[in-house]
Amino acid sequence: MISLDTTKCIGCCSCSNVCPSKNITREDLGDKRTIHYKKCSEFCDICVESCPSKALSLAAQGEDVEIAFDLVKCTVCGEPFATEKMLDRIRSSVPQNLRVDSAGQSWVEICPMCRRDLERERAARPVIKKRA
């Protein structure tokens, strides 16, 4: 059985991805992410090993647990894309000078899809100028 430390969980996709028994499920609905931990009686600790924030541990007793997160909206397109705690984790693992792009814009709050579009836009601009 597993126990969840809700203060440590960052709401990423690890445990729900690796659980072989589908006892951990993740659902993104609008700007809410819910992770549901079904009472688990498997002799397995894959989720514990896979947790980046060490929020899971093996326990003698277990019960159904649910944890919900608000998803942060992309500052460009407005679509919800990650939990604030995940972004905090990026901010703590990537040094400040690398968290801004070539235009001096902070990219952490921008969703990956918009980051690709911005990158393309920047690369295309000089060529478009010549072809205009």
Partner: peptide
């Protein structure tokens, strides 16, 4: 483990 932190850490959005 598929945690997706790398996708959020890529400045160019090129990790899926």
């Amino acid at each position: 483990t598929g945690c997706s932190l790398c996708a959020l850490a890529c400045p160019f959005g090129v990790v899926w």
